[in-house]
Write a protein that binds this DNA or RNA. Structure first.
Length: 119
DNA sequence: GGCGTGACGTCAG
DNA sequence: ACTGACGCCACGC
């Protein structure tokens, strides 16, 4: 994906803003940046650019709080536990650890970055 | 410009 | 609660 893409930029900013000890799901990320349905794309961003942009990629998990299986998922489990996120059998309690940014905070974060134009 | 693909989501059984 | 089928959509070949 091009780094210029609004979808990409918004995703990167949002992911970087996830507080320590909190998590977001792929679907939540996509809807928060006004690109619902693009959950799969979030995964692409993480796998391709988490190093480059120093993303806290371990704080992004699948629906229902389930950690996705990927090359570094073991590292992800360690990171989460280190931040105090309890894991029970590859799962996180979203009610407890799910991040819910306020509308205001969200606006501030994404200020100046155009929304991705959905088809 | 068509076509397969993915660190996903949802729903049925 | 778990599994599989199917839907999804921008990217990249």
């Amino acid at each position: 994906m091009k780094d210029k893409s609004p979808l990409f930029q918004r995703a990167v900013i949002l992911i970087r803003a996830i507080p320590k000890g909190k998590v977001l799901t792929y679907g939540k990320v996509s809807s928060l940046i006004s690109a619902p349905g693009c959950a799969r794309h979030i995964s692409y961003i993480l796998s391709s650019s988490s190093e480059k942009y120093r993303l806290p990629w371990h704080r992004v998990i699948g629906a229902n709080g389930k950690v996705s299986m990927h090359a570094n998922y073991l590292e992800q489990l360690e990171e989460l536990e280190r931040e105090g996120v309890a894991l029970e059998n590859f799962r996180v309690d979203l009610d407890k650890y799910g991040w819910q940014p306020s509308k205001k905070a969200l606006q501030k974060l994404l200020k100046g970055i155009p929304e991705h134009r959905l088809k």
